[in-house]
Amino acid sequence: MNYMPGTASLIEDIDKKHLVLLRDGRTLIGFLRSIDQFANLVLHQTVERIHVGTKYGDIPRGIFVVRGENVVLLGEIDLEKESDTPLQQVSIEEILEEQRVEQQTKLEAEKLKVQALKDRGLSIPRADTLDEY
Rank of each mutant, 00 (worst) to 15 (best):
M1N: 13
Y3F: 11
T7I: 02
T7M: 04
A8D: 13
S9D: 07
S9I: 03
L10P: 00
I11S: 07
D13K: 08
D13M: 07
I14H: 03
K16V: 03
H18D: 00
L19Y: 15
L19N: 08
V20C: 07
V20D: 06
L21C: 01
R23D: 15
G25C: 02
R26K: 06
R26T: 03
I29L: 09
F31H: 11
F31L: 08
L32I: 03
F38K: 15
L41M: 04
L41Y: 05
L43K: 05
L43G: 02
Q45G: 10
T46E: 03
V47C: 06
E48F: 08
I50T: 07
H51Y: 13
V52M: 02
G53P: 02
G53Y: 00
G53A: 04
Y56L: 01
Y56F: 05
Y56M: 03
R61Q: 10
F64K: 10
V65H: 13
V65P: 05
V66H: 00
V71M: 04
V72C: 09
L73V: 15
L73D: 11
L79R: 13
K81M: 09
K81A: 10
E82F: 06
S83P: 09
D84N: 15
L87W: 12
L87H: 12
Q88K: 08
S91R: 02
S91P: 02
E93R: 01
I95L: 00
E97H: 07
Q99W: 12
R100I: 01
V101E: 10
K106D: 10
L107F: 14
A109H: 15
A109L: 15
L112D: 14
V114S: 10
V114P: 05
A116K: 11
A116M: 10
L117F: 11
K118D: 10
D119P: 06
L122A: 11
L122P: 07
S123E: 11
I124D: 02
I124Q: 06
R126V: 06
A127Y: 01
A127F: 00
T129I: 09
Y133S: 07
